[in-house]
Design a protein around this nucleic acid. Structure first.
Lengths: 142, 142
DNA sequence: CTATAATAGTCCGACATCGGACTAAGGGGG
DNA sequence: CCCCCTTAGTCCGATGTCGGACTATTATAG
């Protein structure tokens, strides 16, 4: 019963939940309390791509525009980012990291590394690769 | 980049999101609007195990007690279940399906089947089994 | 048997999330 | 150059979710 293919949605839900709780706890531990995994995703996106518009952030973290409004508001209030109007096109906002925001990078990378260790534990590399490859296929097929 | 083991959390998050949207849409289509996947989980649990206490439901669907209070309230308001005090131990409530609730069973099974077809598409059976087995392992290791 | 601990559940405040309505700005055709 | 469509973003109400405080009931220890 446990390993039947029908269980996949259930398993994915549980894993995602555990990952979420783990990351939330780590953020708490590093006095970034108040921030949730999704805020980490936004910061990660800013590390990776530099300045971004609200819409771009929404696409990258896969949330609705209205959600991103709240999210970015919180990140700004915490002093990790700032928001400026694009001079060329006044419909856009440009979100960018502050120095304080850039200072989080090492912590976030560390959390991510710990997370990976935690989730895979002693699973051999080939199995990891196979697993991710299968998951990627499911995502593409949709 | 896409298939590196580090992507697993990201992939799982996306899959879960897509599954959620699919199920929500199916519930809507069958005029069970207002109900969300998690309500389906509760109903499934009741089909499978019969009567359950609030706490048992919380464990099965992996939500906090306070969340289950709201969830069950909604299901009862929709007429799918009812709530009675356990005569032996007055701390417990016994949640049970109504006739209307039992009538949902075929629909929910149908949605589940469709979901499985949708998520796996043409993935060969061996790969499905391997995938689920690996996911189950990750869940256990946690 | 009474005081304390454990257990089931609710209530409350906070917040992430969504959909949809709305505003503001830009682009294109006549 | 003006009207209309598109696009970026916000606002609002609803709701799922959580943690923690609280109540009520039952179990247990002395």
């Amino acid at each position: 019963m446990r390993n039947e293919p029908e269980m996949i949605i259930h398993l994915i839900g549980r894993l995602r939940e555990k990952a979420n709780r783990f990351i939330t706890a780590e953020l708490e531990r590093r006095s970034m309390g108040g921030l949730k995994p999704v805020h980490g995703d936004v910061l990660f996106a800013l590390f990776k791509y530099g300045n971004l518009s609200m819409k771009q952030i929404a696409e990258i973290v896969d949330r609705k525009k209205s959600t991103v409004t709240t999210l970015v508001e919180k990140i700004i209030k915490a002093g990790y980012a700032e928001k400026n109007i694009d001079d060329n096109d006044n419909r856009f906002f440009i979100i960018s990291l502050t120095d304080k925001g850039r200072g989080l990078k090492d912590d976030l990378i560390d959390i991510s590394d710990k997370m990976i260790k935690k989730v895979y534990k002693d699973m051999p590399t080939e199995e990891r690769v196979q697993l991710v490859s299968s998951l990627a296929k499911l995502n593409d097929n949709w």
